[in-house]
């Protein structure tokens, strides 16, 4: 055995992890929401998921970093090709996985790299925000913004503003899969 497998005896031998043809790779069962409910100096910190379009907002966020701008570390950015790529399930999944707020950010209308993606985003999420409000979600927990690649200060301001808006609301418990 040891001659065949250099890793023999390691815990990886016992569990089906990856590489087995035909067998799904299984996630470990969730034990706690990832990274949520973290405290800093004993204070609860909101966990915000941001979907950033590759061409504008992500570049804007990058510029904010390059410019050494200070903003709250509460937002986790997910880079998507276009804000039109974000579908309603992404948002719901983020809430399920422990997000306290979700931001969808993309190019300004008219500036979409693909021409029209953000116009569809605008209609879709305008409607979805109203639906979530109808289901009892605070509208501040789900927002959308247009941030261009040169608008690093706007990115900083949006993150700061969103964090401060969500902080008084407390953790989002609605639809959460696992308790923090």
């Amino acid at each position: 055995m040891s001659a065949l497998s250099p890793k023999s005896g390691s815990p990886a031998d016992c569990a089906v992890t990856e590489g087995h043809v035909g067998l799904p790779v299984l996630d470990p069962p969730p034990t706690a929401a990832p990274d949520t409910g973290k405290t800093k100096n004993g204070e609860w910190q909101p966990y915000i998921v941001g979907f950033a379009c590759n061409w504008c907002t992500y570049a804007g966020a990058d510029l904010a970093g390059l410019s050494r701008m200070q903003y709250p570390p509460n937002m986790r950015l997910v880079r998507v090709p276009c804000s039109g790529r974000v579908n309603p399930q992404f948002v719901l999944r983020a809430f399920q996985k422990g997000a306290d707020a979700v931001l969808v950010a993309g190019c300004h209308p008219g500036d979409c790299h693909y021409g029209t993606g953000n116009y569809f985003t605008r209609r879709r999420f305008l409607l979805m925000q109203r639906l979530l409000t109808f289901m009892g979600v605070d509208p501040r927990r789900f927002q959308a913004r247009w941030i261009s690649g040169s608008e690093a200060p706007k990115f900083r301001d949006v993150v700061t503003e969103l964090t401060e808006q969500v902080r008084p609301l407390g953790p989002n418990r609605l639809w959460r899969e696992v308790e923090p």
């Binding site: 309603p88 399930q89 399920q96 879709r124 289901m135 609605l174 639809w175 899969e177």
Partner: peptide, 22 residues
């Protein structure tokens, strides 16, 4: 895997209801 659990939990049911509506 990963989109929605087959179990009828409140979280997955809400996910189904809202996704279906959207």
């Amino acid at each position: 895997k990963g989109w929605v659990s087959k179990a009828a939990t409140s979280s997955a049911n809400a996910f189904f209801a809202i996704t279906r509506a959207m």
